[in-house]
Design a protein around this nucleic acid. Structure first.
Lengths: 218, 218, 218, 218
DNA sequence: TATGAATGAGACTTCATTCAT
DNA sequence: GATGAATGAAGTCTCATTCAT
């Protein structure tokens, strides 16, 4: 309990193993951490818990990670990479010219499936917003790439947008999409569907202002 | 660190009636907790830290609160009450018939000022989204009233809205408003203004769908 | 919790008040302490508990007693005095020449009534046996006077007994009487009666060896 | 302070198989607790004290015991088992037909040696008489078995005794034997011998009433 | 290299005692 | 003198991290 979060330096704080056997254990630890963080939160999870859930020993955990926080960072990073892959896969030549409505529906649905399938994501997202500004930059960096991807896409859809504006819209969209996704998972199936619908409505209404022509034209 | 609060050095504490002194210390503890929670998060703050920051001893803290979590709850409750007052004050007969744009601008500006002045609010908001059971249940109730207030207002503006829909729109608006407000505070003054503008745009675009007539009429 | 007992010096560690009002409060505190010690034990009782039960404030308690232990000592002392009075009252010219059986029956019954009426006595008796030899001397002193009274009586009944032997028999009798009395109170009414009967049998059988003639003669 | 136990300085602990090392540490903790409880009483001993005296860290203690009370229970249990073994070893076919006097002398001597060698026993015995519920219930069970053993033996010596009576006599004998044993250790060697002699006299005189025939026949 | 027992700093909480009112 | 709020030392227990095996 009560370990202060520290800034993740540029270099990753964990040792990504190359051998298959090690790699498998590394992943098991991250899976365990995800499940436990999602269930009771970062601070309430002990390194012993993680090791046990991952069918290893504490010592095993410390072979890959210098400390408990590094597990969190690695987990966040894994989500980050998976999301990037997802986004990349979603931004094909085809989707990129979809009407705005269709594009957003696509994206939100994909993101929803991802978060629902990865309960640990909520823990990572919320936890990283937990602490003071300075430290929060880790999270910013965490989303940065996705925000950037989105901004790049916005540039294609509307080349007249100022870069600063593009980035702003992108980050706002990502934040809003994330909270509402998380909100959608707090109650029952019906509520989830309702929030999903609202999320789409909201983002469409918001983004239409910046991409009216395409949207109308599309 | 903002919201650090300067104690009048050796102010005539002894001149205050007993109950007032109690109340003052209670508030001081909450202020201290707010500052610390905002800075490093709930778990990283110790009861000793809070007491020290509040210029008391641990024992003093435990005279008011049964345990550390109770401090958090009391803090959340204080914000909740303040926000309710704010909302109530804002929903006068006058404001209630403002055009949607003006109304939202008003609300967002007021909320922005409140959160900026109370950095602890961010900690409470985020932390309460962190863990399922215990704390979250409190938070649900926490926002419930504000959401309800907003839903009631929506009912006045558009009596045709289904109650379920009203509630949904209200909760989505509150969630979105909160994250963006929190986002706005993560960087510099310029960024804050930009995000504020986007928040208004976004909520106006979103809500216009449900309150078109009034908005246009206004 | 966990305050080490310290040797009670010769001088009493409490201030016996002279004024009636004070005296009454002094007694109330002792009554409260007796009840609480009996219920949960010395260490589990707080000075606040005692004060509350005695309808005073902690400050009031500390006007009479320098510390918590002094309350215990004063309580023990009160029991000690009451028992001495009881013994003195019981050793009239009449009882002193009763047959041994009758005498013991008398004594045990009186002692039984006293202990049953003063649940705190058990706490004092047991607690004072709790700690190491050196400290135990307080308790020894505590019983000393009663033991002495008994030894004096033995001397009357059998002037041939060596003083050392007399004292030994007296202390053994007191110890045995006390544990069995305490044992008798651990279960139901029936058990209490049974143990009482055995206590008498046991002491009669034991003491008869030293006072045969009288007993037979009586 | 007796029962302090000399650790072979840097004995080849690492040579012992894992389970043996565990067992050894478990015993060391119990030894430490026994010494300290005997010296200052349960409440005055801290878990840190026990760990230090046992040459471990607090953490080490908590690997074996869930809390402080569990240490006390384990210690009581160890004494209980040792006493049961002692009793069992003492009740051979031979001793069982000894004259009552010889039998009692045997038993008291053995018990005396045991208690003298295990000062912690006093702490356990007295402490467990201290508080009602929690601990006492354990103690009841604690002595129950020994009382039962004794009652069984009584049944052999005098089959005519009512079971209820047998149990009563057994528990009275154990209580009386225990207090007097504890009393014997409060002063010097001479006093100890004297009390020992009286204990035997007392129990012989008491029990003779129930086992007259054998005793006389013997 | 893997294990998991051991360490001990440090968190939370209680409560004897003091002292301003 | 009486009150009871305030203090803070100290106790119990946890858990991140290390290291002998």
């Amino acid at each position: 309990m009560a370990e202060t979060f520290e800034q993740a330096p540029q270099a990753p704080r964990w040792r990504l193993p190359k051998q298959a056997r090690s790699r498998e254990r590394f992943d098991r630890i991250l899976d365990a951490a995800a499940a436990l963080f999602a269930e009771v939160g970062y601070d309430a999870v002990t390194t012993d818990d993680i090791a046990a859930q991952a069918n290893t020993s504490v010592g095993g955990l410390y072979r890959f990670f210098p400390d408990k926080l590094a597990v969190f960072h690695a987990l966040a990073n894994r989500y980050f990479n998976q999301l990037q892959e997802l986004f990349t896969a979603l931004h094909t030549d085809e989707t990129i010219h979809l009407p705005l409505e269709d594009y957003i529906n696509h994206m939100i649905d994909a993101f929803d499936r991802f978060v629902a399938a990865n309960p640990g994501y909520r823990a990572v997202f919320v936890q990283s917003r937990l602490i003071s500004t300075e430290i929060l930059s880790m999270d910013t960096a965490f989303n940065q790439a996705i925000v950037q991807q989105l901004a790049d896409f916005f540039a294609v859809r509307n080349p007249l947008l100022e870069p600063e504006q593009r980035d702003l819209i992108a980050i706002v969209s990502v934040e809003v999409g994330s909270v509402l996704e998380i909100l959608s998972l707090t109650r029952d199936r019906h509520f989830r569907q309702q929030v999903l619908v609202e999320t789409k409505k909201l983002l469409i209404a918001y983004l239409r202002q910046y991409f009216q022509i395409e949207s109308i034209a599309g």
